[in-house]
Write a protein that binds this DNA or RNA. Structure first.
Lengths: 345, 345
DNA sequence: AAATATAGCAAAATCGATTAACTAAACTAA
DNA sequence: TTAGTTTAGTTAATCGATTTTGCTATATTT
């Protein structure tokens, strides 16, 4: 009693008509192809009855459309990217698209491979948070009229659609917040990276310090998957010099940095004030709660998928690249950024 | 100068040979099909030169293999699942498989749809953290010899491979830890769920309390995406009664519960001791750090993907279902589970 | 009444691979 | 010498759809 998977030919044979007719009916082209009402009815009813579903592989092969969107993030287990992925997934599925994802680890070679693989798989659209070094690959996708949306960072040298936040303004505001509360030794601990968003964050910090006539203290940590490898250089940096305020350039740096601070027995914010890039549900909860630069995750995801779906529904020649810059919000939680005593240091 | 995508026919024509020969060579069946060394060489060189890549859709259509694994988790943005996904992704890609993922939201209807979609897409294997209500769908997959591995929970009524942890023992240990430290009013706040892992967690708590002759206090919260909807019932529960220790049934419940505790101005652990299910990097960092039941995430993911890859390499009839139960570890962080004073209450 | 249009569907090509079945030429063995 | 085997491939069927082209019968126009 093995139910063999039905094909369109089976349907056609069963009803003694041609598979062409079945195909037309199932694709809503019955009117256009003037198939009689009764036949349409009959076919639809039968198809429903036996639960026939067209083979999407065959369909893709013929039409060249896979209904799959490729999503490439830095690391799917990262809070920021996992949440972006979640929103994108929802919208994509609702619009009949599936998502194939992968993590680039910010590795250009790996990313090139993955892009090639996505192309090979004939994904219909690309959503990418690209590492430095894949400019050409992205440009090549775009040249071949494949719909691409970058996010989180972009390439100034490549004309593409992208969704980013105003990172410079974000760190500028955060740093300014420290300055305005009287902090003098403000450090910026971040990942060493040539990505646009990281550069902008650095620029924002420097700009605020320069305006205030303060000396910048920047520590750039090498990007690494292992927490230990991030914690070590931060610990060394903090051992060498005393700071009264620290701005962390990413969520992960922030989490690791807080670990160091806690290990050193420093109290936040009395010994050192802290602001971290990227909000985290847990930042809110603990004493001291951590002030953070909150990216509008839902809005970013929404823009990204909207732009992509738009592209997918627009013929290649009349597509326009959309460049969106959103604003991050400084989630001020008093206890981490200024001492409990409530007056400036 | 538009580079048309090359097909195997183009290769064959260019070299004046049959596409069959090309196919054999590219699939490493040259020896078996006794194609001459020189021809093999020539074809491989040419293919390399022009950068020809077989169309994987056509390949899939013909062979019935898609090299895609379907991954269905409760919520890809959840810390636990995002990390599992990350490990699985790595191993899968290394073995030539891509991942299509989606979030079930613990919704049986949605999950049924998604399973149907995966089938339709001809994914080669399924990794599922299933919600209650899809027993038949899973059974049907298995009956049709499709490789399936469940994880996090399983169905006692369905003979399948799965990887879970010993949830009963985990909450038993945690509860026992409270008891041993002299706590008397120990609450268990969890999601209302008939999933095996949640039931086992409840059982473990009850077992420990019964053994100790203490009265159980269980609050079951309705699963909801919105944090507010989780926080509200917890707040009500904690308003009605005073507890000196609370065990949270999941990470998410734990985070929301801690928010309530902090909002109420309670101090952990002096006013109330806390243990949460699922460890979280941030649990470790803050004062008070939170004692947690840590699932062996990497090991779970590793087992899951190993079992699935095994199935994929084994003919259907000789496959055996593997049922793996791993142990969770109680990550004791003194400050959250016992007061700073270090003696029992 | 012949020419044209339209309705209603079907045949066959196509997408790009894999694979079972076949063949021509060279070689081997009886 | 002749049948059988091996070598080195080729032909054609197939996967399951979509789509271009085609065909017939009836209706309408000229």
């Amino acid at each position: 009693m093995i139910k063999k998977k039905l094909s369109i030919v089976d349907i056609a044979n069963e009803l003694n008509i041609s598979k062409t007719t079945v195909s037309f009916i199932l694709n809503g082209r019955a009117k256009e192809k003037r198939i009689s009402e009764e036949l349409v009815e009959k076919v639809l009813k039968f198809v429903e009855e036996v639960g026939y579903k067209p083979n999407s592989l065959a369909k893709s092969l013929r039409t060249g459309k896979s209904n799959i969107i490729g999503l490439m993030v830095e690391n799917i287990s990262d809070h920021f990217f996992a949440n972006i992925a979640r929103y994108i997934e929802d919208r994509a599925y609702k619009n009949g698209y599936k998502i194939i994802y992968c993590s680039t680890d910010n590795d250009a070679a790996k990313t090139k491979d993955l892009i090639a693989m996505f192309r090979d798989r004939h994904v219909d659209g690309y959503i990418i948070a690209p590492p430095v070094g894949v400019e050409e690959d992205i440009a090549s996708l775009i040249k071949d009229d494949l719909p691409v949306v970058l996010f989180d960072r972009f390439f100034p040298s490549v004309d593409s659609s992208y969704v980013v936040i105003d990172n410079l303004q974000a760190t500028y505001n955060a740093t300014k917040y420290f300055v305005d509360h009287g902090y003098k030794n403000i450090a910026f601990i971040t990942f060493a990276s040539h990505q646009t968003q990281m550069q902008a964050r650095l620029d924002g910090y420097n700009k605020a310090l320069k305006e205030s006539g303060l000396e910048p203290h920047v520590k750039e940590v090498i990007f690494n998957q292992e927490a230990k490898e991030i914690i070590k250089p931060i610990a060394e940096f903090l051992n060498n010099k005393q700071f009264d305020a620290i701005l962390f350039g990413t969520n992960r740096i922030g989490v690791c940095g807080l670990k160091v601070i806690s290990d050193k027995g420093l109290r936040v914010p009395n010994d050192v004030a802290v602001i971290s890039f990227d909000d985290y549900d847990v930042f809110e909860l603990y004493s001291p709660s951590i002030t953070a630069i909150a990216q509008p995750i839902e809005e970013i995801a929404d823009k990204v998928i909207t732009i992509l779906l738009n592209k997918l529904n627009t013929p290649a020649h009349s597509r326009k690249n959309e460049k969106v810059t959103l604003n991050a919000e400084l989630m001020i939680r008093k206890s981490s950024a200024v001492p409990d005593t409530s007056f400036a240091k």
